[in-house]
Write a protein that binds this DNA or RNA. Structure first.
Lengths: 128, 128
DNA sequence: TCTTGACCTTCCAGTGACAGGAAGGTTCAT
DNA sequence: ATGAACCTTCCTGTCACTGGAAGGTCAAGA
């Protein structure tokens, strides 16, 4: 199938699929007309990439996951390690954002938000 | 003062301070030797930028905040609007990350993580 | 047969917010 | 006089794409 259909089936934009080929994540066949030609396996990989990217793995991590996926002899512990590490990172991000949220909410709460110029938000930004 | 001291006092790397000058956020004086020369006002602005960046505002938003900060006639409502919008964005990010976390945790939990190759994480990535 | 429109191709540039490093000038202490 | 620690500009790289230009291909309709 052409890239358009592979895009439709995988959920990835055609531009992204070409980019993934550029960086060596997938290697589709080519037809006589020079068009890329994707098989069911390729679409499978693209869906794998789409899913793991949307779960917060970087492209390089996706490359590793894909390699693990294709390595029939790998231990499931290898994969679990990556997922656990990623889980820790996500936890940290959530904590940071929650702290950020708390601070910002305090500022918003403190500001009366009217036509007058005095603003506790700017004062805090300026001094904090 | 030189950029090194401004960096120390504001908490921003010298590279970042030069970058902020490149994009027109600050305009320090120059000494006879060509060195940038920062005053107390500049450091104040740099700290403002540091603080608002760390609160999740983009550089362009920081530019607006700085303009509001320097506009003595602005209404505090203008600032409150920006902060409230940012708060909403942060809430959305937290929700998304929490959902991500939940999914990933389920996967990690489902995987026994041993020496054998069967791995529910990869299976889910592949089919999900 | 011609044309139109939807595909597809490659290549180049831009994004955001810096970071790294090269090559060279300045200042200060020893 | 020398060396370290500053400073300068300029260029490149990061990450993961996205947009666009210029042009080739294909299938359907007039």
């Amino acid at each position: 199938m052409n890239i358009g259909e592979a895009s439709g089936r995988s959920g990835l934009p055609a531009k992204t699929i070409r980019y993934y080929e550029d960086i060596g994540l997938i290697r589709p066949d080519r037809g006589d007309n020079g068009y890329r030609d994707y098989g069911a396996d390729d679409v499978h990989k693209l869906r794998f990439l789409h899913r793991s990217r949307s779960l917060g793995f970087s492209v390089e991590e996706c490359r590793q996951l894909l390699a693990l996926y294709e390595d029939k002899s790998r231990a499931s512990a290898d994969v679990k390690d990556m997922a656990t590490t990623k889980l820790t990172e996500i936890d940290r991000k959530i904590r940071e954002l929650t702290e950020l949220r708390r601070t910002l909410e305090q500022l918003v709460h403190a500001c009366h938000g009217n036509e007058r110029p005095d603003c506790p938000i700017l004062e805090e930004l300026s001094e904090g």
